[in-house]
């Protein structure tokens, strides 16, 4: 219908699927309010508290050798746990998505286990196994191996808690991609390894990256499981989250929040890296989802 026929009536165009302006405003407003109250404000508080007594005091907090030891330990644990979980996660997803075997559902359930039980329990399991009074304790003492209240225990607990991140990210993707590209590569004469490197890995690299980033964030931030096995020995077995708690309990608020800003900063950096990669490779990302 042309405007010439109905010149006088100027109605707002009806939107059959749309909401009214009021509902839209309410929804957006609620979401914003929630995000501000529960996400942005706490984050800003962390930074404000850290800098409350000025930048000098803030940076002084990091000259404390115990703090530096906590930072180093956190990075070390993440550097071991993340690559390990990436490798094992790829292997598990590959097995589950591309092959049929008895016990597949059991394996899937096991992968979810660390998500479904409390991290404190995860830590306690290792204490029961490896501590002086645990099942393997006497043998470990006899052979002079320290696990609980030492770095190996912290690494073990972190690996356990962060295991599902990579696998959970990869399994649905690999299942939806099916096996025909791999089969094509094999009929074209590629070896299994070549097929994995040239066909499978490029198809999963984005999901893998997300999985690794999430895994890393959790590995650096894990508190519960690590707290149980660490023993809280200053300068030796304190990771950053544990160290923050100790500082806070000692009423050393500026130092506590200073270390917290570092931890929050690492998380923010992770997010920035993810966004940057998404932006940089947007075209490629779209291409791998289409088809």
């Amino acid at each position: 219908m042309s405007d010439a026929v109905l010149p006088a009536i100027e109605r707002p165009r009806a939107q059959p699927m749309g909401e009214s302006g009021l509902v839209k405003g309410l929804l957006i407003g609620t979401a914003l309010l929630f995000l501000t109250a529960f996400l942005f404000l706490p984050l800003i508080t962390v930074f404000l508290e850290g800098f409350r007594k000025g930048a000098d005091v803030f940076f002084d907090s990091f000259s404390d050798p115990d703090t530096m030891a906590a930072v180093k330990l956190t990075l070390l644990v993440a550097a071991i746990a993340v690559p390990f979980n990436a490798l094992v996660g790829i292997a598990a997803s590959w097995a589950i998505a591309k092959f049929n075997f008895a016990g597949k559902n059991l394996l899937l359930t096991l992968i979810d286990l660390p998500f479904s039980i409390s991290p404190v329990i995860s830590g306690l399991v290792y204490v029961l196994l490896f501590s002086a009074h645990g099942w393997l304790g006497p043998w470990l003492i006899a052979n002079d191996i320290e696990i609980i209240f030492a770095v190996p225990g912290i690494v073990l607990a972190t690996v356990f808690v962060t295991f599902p991140f990579v696998a959970r990210e990869l399994i649905p993707l690999m299942q939806s991609q099916g096996t025909s590209e791999e089969e094509a590569a094999l009929t074209l004469g590629a070896s299994g390894f070549h097929t994995f490197l040239r066909v499978t890995l490029p198809n999963i690299k984005w999901a893998l990256l997300y999985g690794v980033l999430l895994c890393n964030a959790r590995a650096m931030g894990e508190f519960g499981a690590v707290s149980v096995v660490s023993g809280h020995i200053r300068g030796l077995t304190n990771t950053m989250p544990l160290h923050i708690e100790i500082l806070y309990n000692e009423y050393n608020f500026v130092a506590a929040f200073a270390v917290a800003t570092l931890l929050a900063g690492l998380a923010l950096l992770t997010l920035v890296a993810k966004s940057f990669l998404e932006w940089r490779y947007a075209g490629e990302l779209a291409a791998s989802h289409r088809h």
Binding site: E183, A184, T187, A190, S191, R198, P202, E284, S288
Partner: peptide, 28 residues
């Protein structure tokens, strides 16, 4: 499978989605 040297065309083609046509054909 490699020694069989079979030219197999899959029902939904199974082209390598992250490779251009050139690399797809050159893959083997």
């Amino acid at each position: 499978l490699r020694e069989r040297r079979i030219g197999f065309v899959f029902q939904h083609y199974a082209l390598f989605r992250h490779m251009p046509v050139m690399d797809n054909i050159a893959f083997g």
